[in-house]
Write a protein that binds this DNA or RNA. Structure first.
Lengths: 363, 363
DNA sequence: AATGAAATGAGGTACGTACGCCAAAATCAT
DNA sequence: ATGATTTTGGCGTACGTACCTCATTTCATT
């Protein structure tokens, strides 16, 4: 190996007055020179510190655009004394999906730590707007850069978000949004599209027509309602041979879903398909087995969890639509990077994809 | 609010006699002290430089494990004057998929540049083993860190890969692997699983049985052959009501696919489904239209390109299975990071997913 | 035991940005 | 014009790793 100290090279060919060194990058020094200001002023502008005249800010920004300056994030992260700290506030409880989300926060968090980003996980009482608001208020803007919440659409939460943003925190909503609030970004899937995808599959699965039944946790949950709506759309417009019953509501609970579904199946043994927009899949599978319908009925479910995975394996469930919590947490990570460090910090946001799983493309 | 910073957990349960300072990270200095060697030796071990006795290497590695040292990638990237340089060698030609791949190399490359990784794109004559070998031989290990190739399973390529690895280059195969060679990693989907997924969908789409026809570019292409094989597996074992014809081969070319398919449809107007494992979708769509079968036949295709996207939109194609080139290039990026910078540099590899698209979950 | 090679130590500069401090200059109010 | 205030400049240090040079120690050979 012919060792050529690279920094020598840099000095010789880039050190002069050139704004852009041959092989080198454009640094804050180049920017200062190009804008005709000092390094200190450049720093003030770049980091939004006070004490710079608007005219000067404009000069610097013009120079940024002109010479194509992009701040080096590796150096930037290195120089910041403290890591980026995020608080994830998730509802507690036995909900399978929230458990997956919490797990994703840990696994993705372990990777993020290598890039100087620290995730904290707070669990609060489920569907408790005041608990969420309190948790948000408790976050200190001195020690944290932002918070991630699964939003509940209540005034108390709106107010707490506004206060948090006022303190300088970055707020991202996850899975469930808070439209019209001060939150900076939302990360989650398009649930109407998910319902429509389910409808498209179910329609094709049942070319001979028949009755399809909807199952949900509660139509009071926005994401469930949206999925139902998308499903109805597609079936209504493209598969007129299918009739829709339900939704049967089971509060995403095993026992209740089982009972309500079994009662329905007993009365309608000629059912052609089932679409569960919610979480009570274990109970639903049991009810199907009990009614002697397992495998004879097309079954579309949501969220790749223990029960749905098993259902795919045994052939009871045909398709599972999934929103990957890992992808979502990763998207939060990217969004927070760009919110905290500036627009260069992350790739442009791509919407979270709805993943379609059959037995054969299970990961 | 029970706030549990995740890294505390690490320190408490894994840190042991942790040497590190209260708020700071574990640095190479700590590591040197813990291993009882100098900074220079630590550096030699960490960066695989020669001139360290095996026993000393072991001492340092033991210390790394003991105190939980993880090299700070931000600092590491900052300190290496040079960016990571990769050469992507892709076959030229009108192939839609390769065009998508090339595009992905550019778009993902633009993001990667922000993290000091540079992608170079070389195009070579299609399916020309010698051209590939030559291109590989032409890569200078002084200026490049690695190469990414769509492998062709020929001795000349095996030899060139071995030479490249000998020069210190990291080699990753993309889409098409080179098992048994010296290449460091492979990035691509499981094509047998893709074929099985297609079979599972097609079977459920045709509950009344019937004849399904396979279309391929050439059974000489390994990925096409694997998809056909997976499809046959599933249909044979789970959907005995379906009969399989073909494969019709069209060399992935518009005209040939159109002609061969049209001839087949003319003779078999009662067809129930089509599965095209290859690329000639535009010709196939035209043949279906010509035969008056568009929309009446279940159609599963591969790769989300212009024609397949349009086909989904118009309802001619029911499902498109996709291997996202962007994901693949990103996976290459991660794999190369860890190959060049060490195991901490990238998340553990996840297999590339087979994506399932209907009209309703199109991105 | 002498000799040369290999292994290790000591210490430095560099990467590009963050951030702090204090002085100098420009601007404003009086 | 004077003093008060805001804006800007100059300079230094820090972050953690890479990679260079040169001095010193250890080890195997003869």
């Amino acid at each position: 190996m012919s060792s050529v100290p690279l920094f020598w090279f840099w000095h010789f060919c880039g050190g002069g007055l050139a704004i852009e060194a041959a092989g080198g990058r454009i640094t804050v020094h180049d920017l200062a020179r190009a804008a005709g200001v000092s390094l200190a002023t450049v720093d003030r502008v770049l980091n939004g510190r006070p004490g710079v005249r608007p005219a000067t800010v404009a000069r610097v920004e013009e120079a940024i655009a002109r010479i194509g300056f992009r701040r080096d994030l590796t150096a930037s992260m290195l120089a910041r004394a403290r890591d980026i700290r995020l608080a994830f506030i998730l509802p507690e409880g036995t909900n399978q999906f929230m458990a997956r989300l919490a797990e994703a926060v840990e696994t993705v968090g372990a990777q993020a730590r290598g890039e100087r980003m620290v995730f904290e996980l707070d669990r609060i009482r489920s569907i408790d707007a005041q608990a969420l608001a309190d948790a948000l208020d408790a976050i200190d803007a001195e020690t944290h850069d932002g918070a991630v919440i699964v939003a509940i659409d209540k005034p108390a939460v709106h107010a707490a978000v506004a206060r948090a943003v006022g303190r300088g925190l970055k707020i991202v909503t996850l899975v469930s949004d808070l439209p019209g609030s001060a939150r900076h970004a939302f990360v989650g899937i398009d649930n109407v599209a998910a319902g429509r995808t389910a409808g498209g599959l179910m329609g094709r699965f049942c070319p001979n027509g028949g009755r399809v039944v909807l199952v949900a946790g509660s139509m009071g949950l926005i994401d469930h309602a949206e999925r139902v709506s998308g499903f109805r759309d597609i079936i209504g417009s493209e598969f007129p041979g299918l009739e829709i019953s339900g939704p049967i509501e089971g509060q995403d609970a095993f026992a209740l879903t089982y009972e309500n579904a079994l009662a329905f199946f007993r009365e309608n043994p000629d059912i052609a398909g089932v679409y569960n927009v919610g979480a009570g899949n274990a109970g639903l599978i049991m009810a199907l087995a009990e009614a002697g319908l397992a495998g004879k009925v097309r079954f579309v479910a949501h969220e790749l969890t223990g029960p749905t995975r098993a259902g795919l394996g045994s052939g009871v469930i045909d398709v599972v639509l999934d929103q990957s919590p890992e992808d979502e947490v990763r998207a939060v990570w990217a969004a927070m990077r760009r919110l905290v460090l500036g627009p260069d910090a992350a790739p442009p946001e791509t919407p979270i994809e709805i993943k379609v799983f059959l037995r054969d493309n299970l990961r």
